[in-house]
Design a protein around this nucleic acid. Structure first.
Lengths: 275, 275
DNA sequence: GTTATATATAACAAGTATAGTGTTATATAT
DNA sequence: ATATATAACACTATACTTGTTATATATAAC
């Protein structure tokens, strides 16, 4: 039976397919949806210069995984609280000041110690420096800490379990709190969203609870707050700055604020970038 | 440039290749070696009716995995027990059987349920299929489960914390056990190293403890054991097979063993590959 | 409520990349 | 000197991806 479909009349190039394109395009569709929230099948087909059917197939695959929702004529991101937004945004905020703080924080650590690390981006920047100080025991409720330190056999890792919180990539809740209560540690390194009026604030009550418990079970607490954190805002009170054994910040802190906190007896330490 | 190699003078069938043949033949080479201990390249080439070169390539791949040793003119099994244990060996061996088991296991899940997943490789193969069944709540002590399911917002993830065990990429110990004791779930899916004498065995006492606790807090337990698990070995007794509500295996289970277990009242289910 | 239009699915065909294999030529080991 | 191992190339079959058409289904219009 010879060609009677008419397909062969079309130029071959329109039917070409490079292997592996499909997954790359699906990823880019997700990227687009992360910005726009939703898109029509036609628009995507035009954007990628492929047929509607191809987008349909991509959409079906993504819907199968539960990542997007197929609507009539288009598709929408299923849940916008994806990790991308919060994490990447906060990460790129005040990096250079943080480095000085990290350096000072690391200097407080001695081998064989038991450390508690919270799920903040500031503390996350300490992680690459920890294997050099092994052996250490690390207690944390942050997935990222476990993942980052898992390769190093001289670090003992203890994870506080609990309900997985996607935007923070960490565990919270009753399980987390009970696990923490049964432990003891030497030093806790933590950060907080906002500091003002001599008080550390946070926006999420679950985070407050676990941080308070962890502070209690530690001999010593070290608060890492780059100067951008000294501003208004923050819904829930975590603790007064006098509750911390060390409060590390960077040179950008306003001198007036610095002096006032010092006269109030806060263990404030301004970390300078060396070199 | 026209044909000057002489290749085209040979009938095309001698150069045919069916995709996927290679891994099957490698498996059969291992099977042969498990009986004979060693074999010459020529003998293997004759046995499979392929060229020496093809056997060379197979042998190189197997040697790369450390399963066999290439000698001049032949190849020998490198370590009899190690080969039998090697993950990749077992993986390729019972893959299609596992798929049938996975499919059946998935069919036991209903949306809104609370599941417990252990840290076995068998259960790991279920993970990609879970987002489609959302919403679900997943309880686990396995890092891989959390990592694999983290992107899907309709899955609630609860991690049992504890001491991080690198080789298993999971959490164990007191914290893990205490966290588990405070929970309740609908269905637990678990696997085990070895099954014989109507009993499931494991090699690590920490694993036994957490698995027993998790079994207790679940309404229903489903044991996934592909037929390669029915063999001697296993140091610690986990539980009799009668303790599980479902015992799923594949069609390769010896009929005699199957009949005996059924007469003993075990809820044994042989999963067939559909299609 | 019925019709018209847009969108979704199913089925088929076609192109491309890849894995698998054999042959020859060259290198290495026995 | 001979047997065996590797490298390089050619070729095939298959799986993957895509486009087109035909059919079914859903939304919109009246």
């Amino acid at each position: 039976m010879t060609d009677n479909t008419g397909l062969s009349h079309f130029p071959p190039s329109t039917r070409s397919a490079r292997r592996g394109d499909s997954t790359a395009r699906k990823q880019r569709i997700l990227d687009l949806l992360l910005e726009t929230g939703n898109a029509t099948i036609d628009a995507l087909a035009a954007h990628f210069a492929v047929s509607r059917m191809t987008i349909h197939r991509d959409a079906n695959a993504l819907a199968q995984q539960g990542l997007v929702e197929k609507l009539h004529g288009g598709l929408a991101l299923r849940n916008r609280t994806a990790t991308q937004k919060t994490v990447s945004y906060r990460t790129t905020r005040a990096r250079e000041g943080k480095r000085a703080i990290i350096t000072r924080a690391i200097s407080l650590i001695r081998p064989e110690q038991i450390l508690v690390l919270d799920d903040s981006t500031t503390v996350a920047e300490m992680l690459p420096l920890l294997p050099a100080l092994a052996p250490l025991t690390i207690i944390t409720n942050a997935m990222g800490v476990i993942q980052a330190l898992a390769p190093y056999p001289d670090l003992r890792l203890i994870c506080l379990g609990g309900d997985y919180n996607r935007p923070r990539n960490a565990f919270f809740g009753l399980i987390c709190e009970q696990a923490a209560q049964g432990l003891h540690a030497n030093t806790m390194f933590l950060s907080t969203s906002v500091v003002h009026d001599g008080t550390a604030f946070q926006n999420n009550p679950d985070i407050i609870k676990i941080k308070r418990i962890l502070m209690e079970i530690c001999d010593q607490t070290v608060l890492l707050v780059d100067s951008s954190k000294f501003r208004k805002g923050g819904l829930y009170r975590l603790a007064g700055l006098d509750a911390f054994d060390h409060v590390l910040t960077d040179a950008q802190i306003p001198p007036a604020l610095h002096d006032r906190l010092k006269t109030e007896g806060i263990s404030l330490e301004v970390c300078q970038t060396d070199g």
